[in-house]
């Protein structure tokens, strides 16, 4: 049984809950009081992850940190269809990794802005927002041309990959950091598509889509 060291309002933890919900993986959560308790910097947690970051999973003794790394592990191990992380397709794996790094960029900007606005982190909010807008412009353009090339998802595959799951949460939560998505209509349509994936689940601040 997988244990997810989880904080309900974390988009990076939500990525894992989302993929596990879609793949139908059973797991239990161990809540980490990220705010205001700063439990992710506590002695017991630093033994699990010396970086002091959530999420962490423990899958029968295998302890993994880093949301993107865990997405790779979960999809590689638990997705019988092999479509979320197609191990036999090097070109696609390269693209997926490229967008997983892009997702880290979204965390560093859009998520940081949300930590500033919501949890009072001291950081350069203007730089965080400007950085998020720069990434969103790139993603919107990529998705807009995707719609013209019959590509519904971030990577050129007929079904979604973990790249979509990695990018989705902090895009969807961006308004909590003062980053509107009004200027990114293709991102907004892609968000609808992600929400219609079978097994999709929500978190606080992420609303469901209606039936397609």
């Amino acid at each position: 049984m997988i244990t997810l060291y989880d904080y309900e309002l974390s988009g990076n933890c939500y990525k894992l809950r989302l993929l596990m919900s879609i793949l139908g993986i059973e797991y239990k959560t161990a809540p980490v009081d990220f705010y205001p308790g700063r439990e992710h910097k506590s002695e017991w947690f630093l033994k699990l992850n010396p970086l002091g970051q959530i999420p962490v999973i423990d899958d029968d003794g295998l302890v993994l940190r880093d949301a993107q790394a865990i997405l790779i592990y979960l999809a590689a191990k638990y997705d019988p269809s092999g479509t979320w992380y197609p191990r036999g397709n090097p070109a696609l794996l390269g693209k997926i990794s490229q967008w997983l790094s892009f997702a880290d960029g979204i965390t560093a900007t859009a998520s940081a802005a949300r930590l500033h606005d919501g949890l009072f982190y001291a950081l350069d909010i203007d730089a965080a927002r400007a950085g998020a807008h720069r990434l969103f412009r790139i993603l919107d353009e990529h998705l807009w041309f995707g719609e013209r090339e019959d590509r519904d998802w971030i990577c050129s595959a007929p079904s979604p990959t973990i790249a979509d799951i990695a990018c989705f949460p902090y895009v969807m939560l961006s308004e909590e950091g003062g980053i509107p998505r009004q200027d990114y209509p293709a991102i907004r349509r892609w968000c609808d598509r992600v929400k219609r994936i079978k097994g999709f689940t929500v978190m606080s601040g992420v609303f469901p889509a209606g039936p397609a």
């Binding site: 998505r181 009004q182 209509p185 907004r188 349509r189 609808d192 889509a209 039936p211």
Partner: peptide, 16 residues
Amino acid sequence: IAASHDLPPRHVFHAQ
């Protein structure tokens, strides 16, 4: 205020 392709079925576009 939008392009026709901004309005696929079952979507709400945000215009201003």
